[in-house]
C-alpha cells in the first residue's frame, strides 16, 4: 500500500472548552473537547486539531491541561495550534500531550523558531500553519489569526518554512474559511506542488465532494474539516465513503 489521505477534524477551543457549537448526533455543544475528540476518533477521524483561540493568558494556561486530559483518552494524533511562540512552548505542548504543534504568527515574526523546534523535537511534529488571502495576481500571507497582512506570499513562504524545518504545512484560505463553497484549489495545488512535505488543505469544506477536490485537484495530502461535521451536515464516514468510491485511498474504520 501507500499512505492514505487523511481527514483531520479541527475543534476551536478557548479556556479549555470548545467554543463553536458542535452538533454531534443530535447532541448540541457538548463543550468538552475531550469528549468530542473521542467521538470523532470513533467516527474515523485520522487526526484531531485543537485550535486555541483564547484571548487571555489565563485561558491559554488551561490548554496544556486540556492536552494532558486528551492524550490520556485519545489514540489518534493530536495537533495543537494557536499562541505558540517559542521552541520551549513547543516542548511544553508536546510534553503535555500534543503530538504535533502548529506555529503561525511566531514563525512569520521569527522564522528561526521552526528550525529550533525541529532540531529539538524532530520535523515530524513541527507544523507550519499558513493563513493566506487572495488578492490581485496571487495571494498574501496574513498573521495574527488572519487579521494582519504581511509582506509574504504563501508559495515562497511555504518553501522557506520547509527549508527551516517544518515537517508539514497547514494551509488555510482565509477567503474560503467558513464559506462552505469549497477549498481554494489553486492555492492548495500551488503550495502542495512547491514543497516536499505533506500539505493539509483548510478552509471552505461545504460537502464531501469539496474534500475530494482538495485531495485530487488540490494535490493535498490531508483535508481539515470542521463546521460541516460539527453542524451535522455530513460525517467523517460519509466523506470517506465518497473518497473511497472515487478511488482515493483512505483508512476505513472496522465496523
Amino acid at each position: 500500500m501507500t499512505l492514505t489521505r487523511r481527514i483531520i477534524v479541527c475543534l476551536d477551543v478557548a479556556g479549555g472548552r470548545v467554543v463553536k457549537g458542535v452538533q454531534f448526533e443530535s447532541l448540541r455543544d457538548v463543550g468538552d473537547p475531550v469528549v468530542l475528540a473521542e467521538r470523532y476518533e470513533r467516527a474515523g477521524a485520522d487526526e484531531i486539531v485543537y485550535l486555541d483561540i483564547s484571548a487571555s493568558a489565563e485561558e491559554r494556561a488551561t490548554l496544556l491541561d486540556l492536552a494532558r486530559r486528551t492524550a490520556e483518552r485519545l489514540f489518534v494524533p493530536l495537533t495543537i495550534g494557536g499562541g505558540i511562540r517559542t521552541a520551549d512552548d513547543v516542548g511544553r505542548a508536546l510534553r503535555a500531550g500534543a503530538d504535533k504543534v502548529g506555529i503561525n504568527s511566531a514563525a512569520l515574526e521569527r522564522p528561526e523558531v521552526l528550525t529550533e523546534s525541529a532540531e529539538r523535537f524532530g520535523a515530524q511534529c513541527v507544523v507550519a500553519s499558513i493563513d493566506a488571502r487572495r488578492e490581485k495576481g496571487g495571494w498574501r500571507v496574513y498573521s495574527r489569526g488572519g487579521r494582519t497582512p504581511t509582506e509574504r506570499e504563501p508559495i515562497s513562504w511555504a518553501r522557506e518554512c520547509v527549508e527551516r524545518g517544518a515537517g508539514e504545512i497547514l494551509l488555510t484560505s482565509i477567503d474560503r474559511d467558513g464559506a462552505r463553497d469549497g477549498y481554494d484549489l489553486e492555492l492548495t495545488r500551488a503550495v502542495a506542488d512547491a514543497v516536499h512535505v505533506p500539505v493539509i488543505a483548510s478552509g471552505g469544506a461545504g460537502n464531501a465532494t469539496h474534500v475530494l477536490d482538495a485531495l485530487r485537484q488540490g494535490h493535498a495530502d490531508a483535508a481539515l474539516v470542521a463546521g460541516i461535521l460539527h453542524d451535522g451536515v455530513t460525517t467523517v464516514g460519509a466523506i470517506k465513503t465518497l473518497l473511497a468510491d472515487a478511488g482515493v485511498l483512505v483508512r476505513r474504520k472496522a465496523a
Binding site: T4, Q124, G167, P198, D221
Partner: peptide, 11 residues
C-alpha cells in the same frame, strides 16, 4: 519518498 516526513496512516 518524494514527500518527507512520512506522516499518516499506512499499511
Amino acid at each position: 519518498s518524494p514527500r518527507v516526513p512520512h506522516i499518516g496512516w499506512n499499511s
